[in-house]
Amino acid sequence: MTKRWGSTLLLWFVCLVFAMPLIVMVSGSLKTPEQLARDPYSVVPESPAWSNYVQAIGSMPFWRYLSNTLILCGGCVIGTTVSCAMVAFGLARVPWAGRKLLFALVTVTMLLPWHITMIPRFVLISHLGLYNSFWAIIAPTFLGDAFFIFLLRQFFLTIPQSYLDAGRIDGLSHWGLFWHLVVPMSRPALATVALFQFIQTWNDFSGPLLYLNDPQKFPLAYGLERFVSSYGDQTHLLLAAAALFTLPVIMIFFAAQRAFVEGIATK
């Protein structure tokens, strides 16, 4: 019994340590600058200063940033899902000679550090005239992503061959098998890929740092960093902006947790 109490106490302590930064972020974002200076750590703000959020949104082209972010996310999600599904199908379900070598290459590229490719990629993108356009960030996703290809290939491999054979007998081509059979059967996996690409693009900081220079085109992640540079001393606004930026990801996390990974958490 005492052991049980001990571990519960320890668990509560651990949770407090992990949750505290988030709690003070939210409570700090709701404090007036005066209260924040006087009493930064109390969990409950005296009277919630929602105006911080209004002010944070007003101090930057928030809606513009948000719509840029959503465009980038949308473009990248489409690019990744389409390209990775196709490639994964080609690797998993089309019997051809090159696929083993190609799959080995896919896995190898996952291990390479970005340091080497960063500069040449920049040169490539600017030679293609994509610098300072959303395509600089979106276009590469149409060329597949090793991890997502790997993930989808694993999934496609589990589709029973008998389904595909049946499709073949019905006269479906490879494209037909892919589009009418594999894609509909793989919705959960495709949704997973889409979801994680969405979050990845939402959080992406270095893409815009390298490729975008017009504030009209900045997404939120980069806009937030610019905001830190301009309003570094106005903590209440910074916290409000950070909380605003975080909220959608947390919402997606909770929604997705139920949809995709509930099995693990409870098992």
Partner: peptide
């Protein structure tokens, strides 16, 4: 078909890696 389905990544590999 194999080449076609994998072509996005092949192009990607050549250009981006």
């Amino acid at each position: 078909a194999g080449w076609l389905f994998c072509s996005p990544w092949i192009v990607g590999f050549l250009l981006l890696f």
